[in-house]
Amino acid sequence: MAQVKDESFLEVRNVHRSFWSGGGRVDVLRGIDMSVPSGALTMLRGRSGSGKTTLLNLLGGLDRPSAGEVLFKNRALHQWSDRQLTVIRRQEIGYIFQSYALLPLLTAWENVELSLRMAGTSRTQWKERVARCLELVGLTKRMHHRPSELSGGEQQRVAIAKAMAHRPHLLLADEPTAELDSQMAAHIIAIFRDIVEAEGIAICMTTHDSTLWGAADVVYQMVDGRIVTQ
């Protein structure tokens, strides 16, 4: 386990998120208060429909709250323009999705390198950084394979390497082990722990898998759009 620092660089204060549908207003988040500490693995746990993914989208500036505040390094993300949020997402936040989000015609190496291109990282750093990230996720021998030539677990590891390549302060992962068997899921979590320890990157992920919770530094239990326990 990482030694969780007292300071938090991501704060959520009394956040609500509602959507309108044909049947009226749907309250997905109902007064969320939480924080993500630096250099730690944080998990949002709960059943499907508890609001985990909606909250994760707010943490990364992919959505805006209906009320309340989301503060990233003392900056109110919900008040920033779309252009400003794009810069933050490309340079300071990494995303890992269930669908892997890899470009099928690019090799593992090229997919990770693309993240550095988009973040504006100096070209002189690309080779060393891509090699480092693929080594950290255990894919050195598979770096020249395309996604179709990789297993689901290997594709997820490429996605992790891609998300961390530009040295973000925060990695957000939405159910990153949902499509994997228990052995590979445990392996992915072990990689997350290595990233936290070796890179100092904070990771916040959603999961409904109770076998993974013990690996986290901080766990928030979500029920019906509320956090009920920490």
Rank of each mutant, 00 (worst) to 15 (best):
E92Q: 15
W80G: 06
L29T: 10
R89V: 10
L59T: 04
D82G: 13
T53C: 03
G46H: 00
F72E: 01
D33N: 15
V36A: 02
T53Q: 11
R30E: 09
R83D: 14
D82C: 07
D33T: 13
G49D: 09
L102F: 13
S50A: 15
P37R: 11
T86P: 02
T53L: 02
A76F: 13
Q98H: 02
I93G: 10
D33I: 07
Q98S: 04
G60K: 05
I93Q: 10
G51M: 06
G46L: 00
T42Q: 00
G94V: 01
V36L: 07
V87Q: 15
L55C: 09
N74P: 10
T54Q: 05
V36E: 01
A40Y: 00
A40R: 00
S38M: 02
I96R: 09
L77P: 02
L62W: 10
A67M: 09
V87A: 14
S99P: 02
W20Q: 12
L55S: 07
R64T: 15
E69H: 14
G49V: 05
A40Q: 01
Q79S: 14
K73C: 09
M34T: 06
L59K: 02
V26N: 08
V36S: 01
I88R: 14
N74D: 15
P37Q: 08
L44W: 00
T86Y: 11
S35N: 12
Q79W: 14
A67V: 08
R25I: 12
L41R: 00
G39E: 05
R30S: 08
K73V: 05
G31L: 01
A101N: 15
S48R: 14
S48P: 12
Q91M: 04
L56C: 05
R83Q: 15
G49S: 09
L55Y: 06
A101Q: 15
G60S: 06
M34K: 05
